[in-house]
Design a protein around this nucleic acid. Sequence first.
DNA 1: ATTAGCACTCACAGGGTGAGAGTGCTAACG
DNA 2: CGTTAGCACTCTCACCCTGTGAGTGCTAAT
Lengths: 340, 340
Amino acid sequence: MDPNITERQQALLGMIVMEYIATAVPVGSDTIVRKYYPGISPATVRHDMNVLAAAGYVYHPHPSAGRVPADRGYRFYVRHLMQPVDVPLAEQRRVGHLFHQVERDSDQWMQLAARVLAQVTGYAAVVTLPLVRHSRLRHLDLIATQDHAAMLVAMFQEGTVHRNLVVQPEPLDQGRLDEVAQLFNSELCGLPAAEIRSWGRAQTPLEFSVRDTLSSLMQRVDQQVLPGVWYDGISSLLAEPEFARGEKAQEVMRAFEQRQFAAELAEAVLEQPGVRVMIGDEVPWPTLRECAIVATSYGREGVGGAIGVVGPTRLRYEQVIATVQYLGALITDLWAELCQ
Amino acid sequence: MDPNITERQQALLGMIVMEYIATAVPVGSDTIVRKYYPGISPATVRHDMNVLAAAGYVYHPHPSAGRVPADRGYRFYVRHLMQPVDVPLAEQRRVGHLFHQVERDSDQWMQLAARVLAQVTGYAAVVTLPLVRHSRLRHLDLIATQDHAAMLVAMFQEGTVHRNLVVQPEPLDQGRLDEVAQLFNSELCGLPAAEIRSWGRAQTPLEFSVRDTLSSLMQRVDQQVLPGVWYDGISSLLAEPEFARGEKAQEVMRAFEQRQFAAELAEAVLEQPGVRVMIGDEVPWPTLRECAIVATSYGREGVGGAIGVVGPTRLRYEQVIATVQYLGALITDLWAELCQ
DNA sequence: ATTAGCACTCACAGGGTGAGAGTGCTAACG
DNA sequence: CGTTAGCACTCTCACCCTGTGAGTGCTAAT
């Protein structure tokens, strides 16, 4: 709370923010009096607006225009003025239904989460797939696909599934592959990449090959720094007047296509629980400096990612925060269901 | 070939198209003479330009501007004037290397294909994941994940892998799951969804549950009409002057986010072999009417998808066609390697 | 502290202007 | 008959000027 700002000035800031979020037009003193504050004079409002402007909460785009909230004004609104809301129960039920209609598969869930988040909020949704740092083998399967090739399907303790082709000079039959898979499952279950790599009991060329393929796959997974990522609703984001100039649209798209963005976002939200709100110049990615990002983590220790919304700083914060929080919790539950 | 257009006028059309593709500026008669045709007078060029304009190959954006190729002009250029090129060998080697550095997994390949296509061409790349119509079981695996839940991992003859959770009231242990998986693999390998659904030899609740989960998963896969899709390079596309107005950027994004687009593109390219080029008003998606699409199919009978590029009609057709063709063939080979 | 009154500032749209690019037409040429 | 030079014409674009309207800041009165 800023001690230099009176109660009434705070209320006025709230009105300016709400009005600007709703209309995207600079807010003049007349508008405030007419819509929110009948019985007070525009001159008084102007006086208070001056105080808010001096403190950096609002500014004019030009001297004869109304006031626009500054990043600092949005921040004050989100922290002190906004009335938190919940996702309506009907919406919760509708969304819950959607998740029971798709394949019960983590990829499908993440994709659906992005779609729902985009549709409900009307902004761009971003969902990262979980990164696994210390993968341990849960189960391995070898499937003959050709005379000399088999598909290795490995599931890790964390619930993720990866595939890799194994090609051998000698012919492969499914019976032999099953035996090898069983050997690995009984001997190597629960072990990390390093121990699998140095496992000494491989004997046949096939066993060596599977061991090496598996351990290098797990190593790649552990060292992977760029998570998979789903976006949705980018077209709705571009419909916002802030992105009417094509150059802005391009900047946003460029951030989204640099996979670094998703990685850093996941890192940022995983380091502390709860919904994180970044507004304007707080946003650490230069091309998104005129955006607001509302994001949270999902999952748990060791396997988790980020789910969030990117919109203009003129964001409907109440609704977006509620929706992100709700979907984050939903996805966390789904992952828990997937794997112990 | 148009009989009303002389050789020289065709050559002129080629120059206009090349110059406009390179500069995005309407081409005047002076420019043609200076850059391409020294020793002929601008008036002659203007005369021929008039003929081309009357035949609908070029037009003016306004009376005192140079000529811009019309969709029909681009089409004539692509069919009759363009010199086909190959992807340079160095580039082929570089790209080949990239595909050997990632996990040997179809999803990774498709994603990489999109990235490479976008980077090499500088336009937006679109890659659809294969749709399977008549899936037949190749191999099934059941992995205990919790006391009452197991992950069903199914690979189909076509090489695709799907997952679905199985939840049971009774406790599950891995040994029992392995037995059930083995039973299914020996009895149901090669069968389509319908036959698995009506398989009569399930006895325990777990067997019934696995049978039903598997058959409904396969049915969902068979009936799926919207393929998965990867995009890349959209930001480069938005950098083209054609998309400087934010409204255009939004239209393109909207098409990309409607999964119908990817489905219809795949359908269109799968119906006939070879690279398909759609220019301007030929493009069947209204919001992409000012774009050109170069796409081809990959894969083979029963399992295949589309890979292509979306750019302005002012597209570097030679390079894009060569790259799309090359990557389509490469991806086809990779899929063949994956599965017989 | 609040308010009325008023002069002031600035963006924006409309209209006029000059420069420049590129054309179409015509008549002459080989 | 194809080609060319010459020339008037058209249209965009950038510029400037102007009036209008929105909204302000300041001051003095309440």
